[in-house]
Simulated scan of single mutants.
Amino acid sequence: MGMWTRSELERIAASDDLYIAPFREDHKTYGTPTWIWSVIVDGHLYVRAYNGEASRWYQAAIRQGAGRITVAGTTRDVSFAGARGAINDQVDEAYRLKYGKSPYLAPMIDERVRVTTINILPAD
């Protein structure tokens, strides 16, 4: 797996337009892009599923482990890895800083959604 460049992370952090499209069951066809919130923590890109573990994109991302994102005018093939444990406190804080004025913030830092935290890494 690759790493994001500083420039890419800065553009992603400043953007509010991340679309995620995990692979479908055939591992070749991308799913329908879904708009989601994203945050950067310690040089890593994280997302969460607003509808919790029942979110279709989340289920596909965990099952397939790869797909594509479009953000800040760029489309990249990526891999997905679940993120559990202490990192979630930092992800919560990043959501508070980036989306603190939104009425949708509270559900995004609720335990039901915290379990869906995914680290997105660029594909090699």
Rank of each mutant, 00 (worst) to 15 (best):
I118H: 00
T70V: 07
S38R: 07
T29K: 01
R6S: 15
T29C: 05
S38M: 06
T117W: 03
T116E: 02
A81Y: 09
I120F: 03
I69H: 04
D16K: 15
R6N: 14
T29I: 01
Y30D: 00
L97H: 14
S55F: 08
Y99M: 10
G65W: 02
Y58Q: 04
R24H: 06
A106W: 12
S38E: 12
R24I: 00
T32D: 08
T5P: 00
W4M: 00
E111G: 09
R63C: 04
I69K: 04
R76Y: 13
P22N: 01
G2P: 11
D77R: 09
P33M: 00
L121Y: 14
D17E: 10
R48I: 07
H27D: 08
T74N: 13
K101V: 12
Q59R: 15
M3W: 10
S102M: 08
H27E: 09
T5W: 07
M3R: 15
G85H: 10
T74M: 15
E25H: 11
R96F: 11
G82I: 13
I62H: 00
N88D: 12
I87L: 07
S15I: 05
A72L: 02
R11S: 13
D42E: 10
W37Q: 03
A21N: 06
A21Q: 03
Y58A: 04
M1V: 15
